[in-house]
């Protein structure tokens, strides 16, 4: 039974807010929900003079856990939305935000900056990753376009780009990196929210807001792709133009997220499938819903990643896959029963 739209939207938002508020209290330092509210209220100027919270605790909440938890929410939402759009647009249930080689391009860019010192110290790891991601996406579009432009060609070009940039990354790491740098790069490649700060959060949130608006504006158009490009064209959709806009928008968002937190796998692949079971396939409902489920999911996964093996941290990408694979199998089984 599908839930009523306003009800489920309200419940989803409430779940997200509650998740963030509770997740922030988890961690080695003992922080209460009261500390969280005190700190947040003080920083937002909502009364509370901060006197109730010690500066140390305030620092942990406001400078460490809050941006990290919110960035997890933004990344979860963004990856899930990108995955949904890619799957619908490319008519491929295995498509995810990284299917067009964006993550491997980002890795190469990051590694080039960290290991080779490309950019002369001016360009940060994030900026290098962002440029690498966009370069890879441009390459995929170029190959896809020159080879005919169909969805299969685009997916195959993405696979080719993924291989190419993975090889380049390995090559650079093997030939130039010392053990210490390799470990740092590897951690980032698997996805990590360790370095989250307010700057990253605002950047990612702004890109998410723009891209989500673009995708919602194309919700009906995405519905029309259900029976393929030809059918969409018959419904008045300018297929090539729409595909370019939506692929570019999702690639931009993916690049922004990957440049901040690395390639966090599985969220963009699994959450769209799981959410479709709740909302149906209409994108006007699916897109906001998948943003919420993705956000809640990654908030909890990151909380698990930073607390399970305390004081050590598990890369969040490892946890998403460890949780995601069984969840995916469950989704596949449910799907089999439905048809």
């Amino acid at each position: 039974m599908r839930l009523r739209a306003p009800l489920s939207a309200g419940a989803g938002l409430a779940a997200l807010l509650a998740s963030v508020a509770v997740a922030v209290t988890f961690g080695p330092a003992d922080i209460s929900t009261g500390d969280v509210w005190g700190s947040v209220a003080a920083h937002l100027g909502l009364g509370g003079d901060g006197a109730t919270v010690t500066p140390l605790r305030d620092g942990i909440v406001w400078n460490l856990r809050m941006p990290r938890t919110l960035l997890a929410a933004v990344c979860g939402a963004g990856l899930a939305v990108c995955g949904t759009v890619m799957q619908s647009l490319l008519r491929n249930p295995l498509a995810d935000p990284f299917v067009l080689g964006v993550s491997s391009g980002a890795s190469t860019g990051a590694v080039a900056v960290v290991v080779l010192g490309a950019g002369g110290g001016v360009v940060s790891l994030s900026a290098g990753a962002f440029l690498g991601a966009l370069l890879s996406f441009a390459l995929v579009l170029l190959i896809g376009h020159t080879s005919g432009g169909g969805t299969d060609r685009v997916v195959l070009s993405g696979v080719a780009a993924m291989q190419l940039f993975s090889a380049l990354t390995s090559f650079i790491v093997m030939t130039s990196a010392d053990a210490e740098t390799t470990r740092g790069v590897l951690f980032w490649l698997l996805g990590s929210l360790t370095g989250a700060d307010w700057g990253q959060l605002l950047f990612c949130a702004a890109v998410l807001a723009v891209v989500l608006a673009v995708c919602l504006g194309h919700a009906r158009t995405l519905d029309a792709f259900a029976f393929g490009d030809e059918a969409a064209a018959g419904l008045g959709i300018r297929v090539a133009r729409t595909r370019l806009i939506l692929l570019s928008a999702t690639a931009l968002l993916t690049a922004a997220l990957v440049s901040c937190v690395g390639a966090i796998g599985f969220v963009g692949l699994v959450l769209p499938h799981a959410t479709r079971l709740l909302t149906g396939s209409g994108h006007a409902r699916l897109l906001p819903a998948v943003a919420l489920t993705g956000a809640v999911f990654l908030v909890w996964v990151d909380t698990a990643a930073r607390t399970l093996l305390d004081p050590r941290e598990v890369p969040v990408g490892v946890v998403t896959s460890l949780i995601g694979v069984p969840a995916f199998v469950a989704v596949l089984h449910r799907g089999r029963r439905r048809t």
Binding site: R91, A224, A226, F227, G228, L235, S281, G335, R338, T339
Partner: peptide, 17 residues
């Protein structure tokens, strides 16, 4: 042909796009 899970009404409603 579609792999998307759609009801008959949703398919027909595509005509309103």
């Amino acid at each position: 042909h579609t792999q998307t899970e759609l009801t008959v009404r949703e398919v027909v409603a595509l005509g309103r796009v």
